[in-house]
Nucleic acid binder design. Structure first.
Length: 884
RNA sequence: GGGCGGAUAGCUCAGUUGGGAGAGCACAGCCCUUACAAGGCUGGGGUCACAGGUUCGAGCCCUGUUCCGCCUACCA
């Protein structure tokens, strides 16, 4: 006998261990079965599970478990990402606590420290994935700094270099002064802020007069090497070529003309700082201007800053404004909105910074990646993201891949000290071709996303041509949040196409971001983070997973509310109680066969089996379309409202009765439907389903639900006739319940019912009298076409039947008249609406005939109902008069 | 600046080729009916943001407007 309530804790661990022990999650390198593969979006090794992961994991596990049960050779490949900057930051903070830093330690020692840290804490998130029930193949777990993956990284780097798709150059890049490294464009988060626009006077070198420029960053004037105006701007035409003398530092710079300058902005004259602004950089190149770097790597003013040398960049800004004002060069200050770039790891304001970096020439790769989606070799779901994808891909700029940190894949490039030769090599070279052994490896490491871009094939063994690679590449689907569509998904597509000449996955399913109940982005600083571990602790993993699936409607953010988890825990409890109910109705030791003995089945049995088939069809179809919420909803609706509310109630008389044959038919149908339901549910809630399934008193064709065949539609048990008949029974039952509810009659009160119905309806009702008696708690149900409306009876009108509930002493004739009148009012509105349509000639002539016909039928039905209601009311009125 | 999405019941949201709007939760009433009170039955509740347009017919398609959110961008 099962416990009264479902207690998830022990059960979850028990079954997870069992699955692992049985190796169910292990994929086959070669197999007769069709392959199905998902590579996990590798979480940061420093990370711990947040709710976004939980959603991601749940959806992937649903797909994987569904496909595994459906007979696929499934591989869900797990792993973690070394997360260069993030991880380095974490370990650096540790060192700081110990009163030291990485420079004291030196590069090698520091990297050792990080590995040590990884060994100690890197398993955290992996364990948390297991807690979520993730059915990954742990024997294939990878890490982006694994030896194999590192080999892949070198291979890709060298080949791209050899093809001229990787180059080194001195450009303006995004620089984080705190992390002390370059960032790619994507790693900069822009945030709109209210800033100031400063108008500053620049005096001419040759005597009187000045030109005013507008700037948001006055401190950069220290690096100005020109002032630019639009060549067509009449105000300044004569000034082109004139020299300006910069205040304080007395540098002479020219006024130049450039098309780029927007005459309508600010004063129409712009200061040009080629080493500190992207536009100015371009202008600097066009006009051969001097590039003066006024900053150091940690965001202070460099030697070039003269008197301001050593000051912090923001302190310097204040000082310069003060000084400008003192000499009367600050003309005015205006409010100005602008977007400021912040480091995505530490939120420090980044600087455009001139330095030598490595880049990937991205256009040729992007073109192929665009084509793959255009040609539908890759489908993005929901398709709304395609536009964003194209937009980004079409305007993509070269990718800065070098990072000035230590934790990561060191760039496989060596410089010869003696002849300045650059050696790019898969292996560490021993000597330069000039004979020198004085080789220095590039100090930088690669962007973490460079290695994760290779994930779908590097994890499968590439560059070796492994069995896994042959079997599982291209992978089937990538499931992830839209926040890394560009960071990761797009780059995987580019790299996959480049190095495997095949797209890395067929489908990309992009899921929403989870926000809090107010729609705010969750963040630690806001303190509105929902901890998934707490959810599983409180409600059980299954309830949490089911909630996430039920939330996962396409194309919309999720506003997460704990209430909903609570609601689905109730659903779990409901399922648990079905199991209890079954165990109470099966003899000890009795083992039911799943085979349904067709001829003994009752109407209810045939109906629920028919519905079951429909649900199987539905769930498979919905999962196929990644409609997780609809699939979850369909199961919820079926199990709770059809199986529990109707079917189980319908068969109770059989179960408690003496007819062994019909009892056995009912029990075996119930167990069969429930067994299939558990299988359908298993991908959504693996633990409870396995726990119950293992205990079900029936023969099973697998030793675990994990590997039971996923249920599919069974046309043989579909039965339209049964569904129609049950609909009639339900109509009658609902009508009687209706009367009971609306007249506030106690559920314990047994009612009498008279049902007026003709011919075949009459037969259906008569055959199924027992259901009506049970479900409506009615006794003495009389059915016939000649039933007369009795006095003191409440009435209900349904299509093709009329129901009377005699109430004798309990009857309140006025209340009943009011009730029927309300009903009549509703039906009159309906009639009016349909009538309006039908009297519209255009509707009759232009609408499809089927629609017109449908409306006519409705009209007739409504009119019948109206007439019956009117008759009933009339009679009640007459009786009332005569009673008075 | 460009782009995308959202606005539907008190709340959270479904609504897949346009044919009189649904669910869950919440709320109200009656019930401890032997699986389940984490339950059962019943009920109330919506100008589908606003204004136009197309159509016999619009929550759905088109145009515009207002609010909200997001992505993206080198107007200093």
């Amino acid at each position: 006998m099962l416990e009264k309530r479902y207690e998830p804790k022990d059960i979850e661990k028990k079954w997870y261990d069992f699955w692992i022990e049985k190796n169910y999650f292990k994929a086959e390198e070669e197999s007769e079965k069709p392959p199905y593969c998902i590579v996990i979006p590798p979480p940061n090794v420093t990370g711990s599970l947040h709710i976004g992961h939980a959603l991601d994991i749940t959806l992937q596990d649903i797909m994987i478990r569904w496909k595994r049960m459906s007979g696929f050779n499934t591989l869900w490949l797990p792993g973690t990402d070394h997360a260069g900057i993030a991880t380095q930051n974490v370990v650096e903070k540790e060192l700081q606590k110990q009163g030291t830093d990485r420079h004291v330690l030196g590069r090698e020692k520091f990297i050792e420290k990080v590995w040590e840290w990884k060994r100690l804490y890197g398993g955290t998130i992996i364990n948390q994935l297991k807690n979520m029930g993730a059915s990954c193949d742990w024997s294939r777990e990878r890490f982006t700094l694994d030896e194999g993956l590192s080999r892949a990284v070198k291979e890709v780097f060298v080949r791209l270099y050899e093809e001229g798709l990787i180059y080194r150059g001195e450009y303006l890049i995004n620089w984080c002064p705190r992390c002390h490294t370059a960032l790619s464009d994507l790693e900069v988060e822009h945030e709109d802020q209210q800033g100031k626009l400063y108008y500053i006077k620049y005096s001419f070198a040759d005597g009187d007069g000045y030109i005013t420029v507008a700037t948001t960053r006055p401190e950069t004037y220290l690096g100005d090497t020109a002032v630019a105006v639009n060549p067509e701007d009449e105000r300044y035409k004569d000034l082109i070529g004139k020299k300006i003398r910069l205040p304080m530092i007395n540098r002479e710079i020219p006024i130049i003309a450039d098309e780029f300058v927007d005459a309508s902005f600010g004063t129409g004259a712009v200061k040009v700082t080629p080493a500190h602004d992207h536009n100015d950089f371009e202008m600097g190149r066009r006009h051969n201007l001097q590039f003066i770097n006024i900053l150091t790597g940690d965001g202070r003013m460099s030697d070039e800053a003269g008197p301001y040398k050593g000051q912090d960049r923001f302190e310097c800004r204040k000082n310069i404004l003060k000084d400008m004002e003192a000499i009367g060069h600050l003309e005015k200050v205006a409010d100005h909105k602008l977007a400021i770039g912040h480091c995505y790891r530490c939120k420090t304001i980044v600087e455009p910074y001139l330095s030598k970096q490595w880049f990937v020439k991205i256009k040729p790769l992007a073109d192929e990646a665009i084509k793959a989606v255009k040609e539908e070799r890759i489908t993005i779901i929901p398709s709304g993201w395609e536009n964003s994808y194209y937009d980004w891909m079409e305007n993509i700029r070269d990718w800065c891949i070098s990072r000035q940190i230590w934790w990561g894949h060191r760039i496989p490039v060596w410089y010869c000290k003696d002849c300045a030769e650059i050696i790019v090599s898969r292996e560490t070279p021993s000597a330069c071709k000039c004979g020198s052994k004085e080789l220095l490896q590039d100090e930088d490491v690669l962007d973490t996303w460079f290695s994760s871009a290779l994930w779908p094939f590097s994890t499968l063994g590439w560059p070796d041509n492994t069995g896994d690679l042959k079997t599982f590449y291209p992978t089937s689907v990538l499931i992830t949040g839209f926040d890394i569509l560009f960071f990761w998904v797009a780059r995987m597509i580019m790299m996959g196409l480049k190095f495997r000449e095949q797209e890395p996955f067929r489908h990309v399913y992009i899921h929403a971001l989870i926000r809090d109940a107010e729609g705010q982005k969750m963040s630690k600083s806001k303190g509105n983070v929902v901890d998934p571990l707490k959810m599983t602790e409180l409600y059980g993993t299954d309830a949490f997973r089911f909630t996430l699936a039920a939330y996962a409607a396409q194309g919309r953010d999720i506003k997460f509310s704990e209430h909903r988890v609570e609601g689905y825990r109730h659903f779990l409890n409901k399922i648990w109680n079905v199991a209890r109910f079954i165990s109470m109705n099966v003899q000890e030791g009795e083992e039911l066969t799943l085979a349904i003995k067709v001829k003994n089945l009752s109407l209810a049995d045939r109906w629920i089996l028919s519905r079951l088939s429909a649900v199987c069809l539905d769930v498979n179809k919905l999962l196929d379309e990644y409609r997780f919420n609809d699939a979850a909803g369909s199961l919820y609706q079926f199990i709770w409202h059809e199986l529990c509310d109707w079917y189980i109630e319908m068969i109770k008389p059989e179960l408690y009765g003496d007819n062994l044959e019909s009892k056995s038919a009912a029990v075996s149908t119930l167990v069969h439907v429930f067994e299939v339901s558990l299988a359908l549910l298993h991908p959504f809630m693996p633990f409870i389903t396995e726990e119950i399934w293992q205990q079900l008193p029936c023969k099973k064709d697998a030793e675990s639900l994990c590997i039971r065949q996923y249920p599919t539609r069974d046309e043989g048990i579909e039965d339209n006739g049964a569904e129609e008949k049950i609909a009639i029974v339900m109509d009658a039952v609902t009508a009687i319940r209706n009367i009971r509810g609306e007249l506030n009659l106690s559920p314990s009160l047994e009612l009498q019912a008279l049902i007026k119905a003709s011919n075949n309806i009459e037969n259906v009702l008569n055959e199924n009298m027992a259901y009506i008696q049970k479900l409506a708690r009615a006794r003495n149900v009389e059915i016939g076409k000649d039933i007369q409306q009795p006095k003191s009876a409440a009435a209900a009108v349904k299509p093709s039947m009329e129901i009377f509930v005699p109430l004798e002493g309990l009857f309140d004739i006025d209340a009943e008249i009011a009730r029927l009148t309300k009903e009549k009012g509703k039906i009159e509105e309906e009639i009016q609406f349909v009538q309006k349509k039908l009297s519209n000639e255009n509707f009759i002539s232009k609408a499809p005939p089927a629609v017109v016909e449908e409306n006519k039928t409705k009209y007739n039905e409504y009119m019948d109902k109206l007439k019956t209601l009117q008759d009933n009311i009339e009679k009640l009125n007459q009786w009332r008069m005569s009673d008075d």
